[in-house]
Design a protein around this nucleic acid. Sequence first.
DNA 1: CTGTTAGCGCCTTCAC
DNA 2: GTGAAGGCGCTAACAG
Lengths: 356, 356
Amino acid sequence: MAKKSNKDLSLSGSDPTGVPGYTLIDVARVAGVSPITVSRALHRPELVSERTRDKVREAARAMGYVPNMLAGGLATNKSRLVAIFLPTIANSIFADTVQAVMDRLTAAGYQTLIGLTGYSAEQEEALLEAVLGRRPDGIVLTGTLHTEASRQRLASARIPVVEAWDLSEAPIDMLVGFSHEQVGVCIARNLLDKGYRRFAVVTLDDPRGLRRVASLKAELQAHGIIDTPTEILPAPATLASGRLGLQGMLEKGHSPQVVVCSSDTIAQGVLAEAASRGLRVPEDLAVMGFGDLSSAAHVHPPLSTVRVNGTMIGQQVAEALLARLRAAPGVKAPPVCIDTGFTIIDRSSTGHMGAK
Amino acid sequence: MAKKSNKDLSLSGSDPTGVPGYTLIDVARVAGVSPITVSRALHRPELVSERTRDKVREAARAMGYVPNMLAGGLATNKSRLVAIFLPTIANSIFADTVQAVMDRLTAAGYQTLIGLTGYSAEQEEALLEAVLGRRPDGIVLTGTLHTEASRQRLASARIPVVEAWDLSEAPIDMLVGFSHEQVGVCIARNLLDKGYRRFAVVTLDDPRGLRRVASLKAELQAHGIIDTPTEILPAPATLASGRLGLQGMLEKGHSPQVVVCSSDTIAQGVLAEAASRGLRVPEDLAVMGFGDLSSAAHVHPPLSTVRVNGTMIGQQVAEALLARLRAAPGVKAPPVCIDTGFTIIDRSSTGHMGAK
DNA sequence: CTGTTAGCGCCTTCAC
DNA sequence: GTGAAGGCGCTAACAG
């Protein structure tokens, strides 16, 4: 491709073969000002006279000029990009959270890069490296990072990190979530209070789900309930998983009064399986879900569930992040750790728990 | 910040306050080669001797060097970024498609930027401009762009664009999808064949959903069925929408034999509402869904639905895109228009339709 | 196989 | 209020 001189009068954008569009310099030439003035008129209008500003804006608009953020980012060492890591996009329990984070960040002028971590640890490391290469201004984690190397790498990236949906023991940086152990305990107590004695668990093979199950079982044992049959299913959560879970449970000869599920999607599958077997819910079999799917409130028969306010988590995540991003790079902001709590929803009572 | 000379021996990454990590130059110094050799060793290893390559890689690894893709992108005029526009992330009918696209692109070394378009046209334009500023190498559209200005802007970006889930009249560039008109016709015929005469529609206020409804009604009218009561609900699709839709329908005194829904989520809401009213499905009320939610196959009672293979669409989208991206910038690739078809699923029969 | 030179498009710093 | 010079980190093109 012919070398492009900024001195000649042809506009780079007029090149018929080359993809690159107009540059700041082209706009400057059309507006009859210097490139830096264009930059200021577009991004820091208060530094420029009104007349100049209008002239430049009009030129830019007419030419369809689109600023190159790669160049801008390189020069300022800011990308205005935030990466969000998600286990999977399909049927994600984090959908509301992600939506809220994106909404808030978009409003603040940031864009969002989604990384899918629901794969091998190796792929996760590669993904992390690739994402870090974009120099994101911040990172949000919803699932868990599976390797220590990954956590290390993230920490050494020296950018704000928010872990959502958990209050982990060893936070990388900031935390917005709730205690999964507490969820398990609360579910146990709630169901014990209602008189259930024969429990069963259908759960995904997910670290946090398993933590909830562990504390649920511990609490049950503290109340003399030793054996709690458990079906552990591979990700991802689907209605089919739930159906299979209940099938497995019944085929093994268990006859629980209540099934505790690791997600609302699983729970809906259990409901479907129960319905197709003619079991009445909750008379023959009660079902407890978990999550944030607004759908849980609208299935039939009505599902008891643990409601996590994913939208609120997302908003808090975004706020925490933006606070850090606004802070001067030197001053180190205070640590952030927000317990958003959760709510157990059933027909007889509703109470908010877990928030400090 | 002190100016950083590339001549002195301090490594830029050792700066304790500055965020930027090591650069190529730092790695070069440690490995005892020139910067360009580092670049080649990392990205085009076949151009470098094995010994040099190992030396460089080892240095980079030890230092935790992460290449700056902003700089790389600026230099090569390639971002290795593909933008995907989605109406919303929650409960999206496009989830499988997005997942498939991302999987394939990730494997090919691309990253994915998700843009949410389910907002005002103004916001959509702003979003598009912001995304284009990142200089993505390609763009995937799932929803529809709402303004002509947006379509114009996209077209003038001179990058590959794939529109998914539709075969629109005026494609911007490439197309992978199916005919929504054909879906409407096929649903009508399928249900007519089964003997239904009293129809109702519960649909989202979505352009493509409305197109399906329009052709459904046209086909019904061609068979003498003039009146088809229709509930049009605002986005997003939730179980609650479906429940409300059926409620509205019944309250207005309609008593359809079959309800055609614009998505499986809506359909599940209708099922829930029917169940809570003691209506048997499909004896008292048959329900037809639409979409790709694997869940549709597992609800109870079983749902008739139009299955769209979202994963396949996603794969085709990614392939089409990658083909363009691999092609030399000069040669213009052939137009792409793939009809992926759809399948009507019910208890009595299953037949694939629509594919050429 | 490896190095040198010269930008990519923008923004910071410092002048005017 | 505006402009000139230089650099952000990387890589194409050309030498050697």
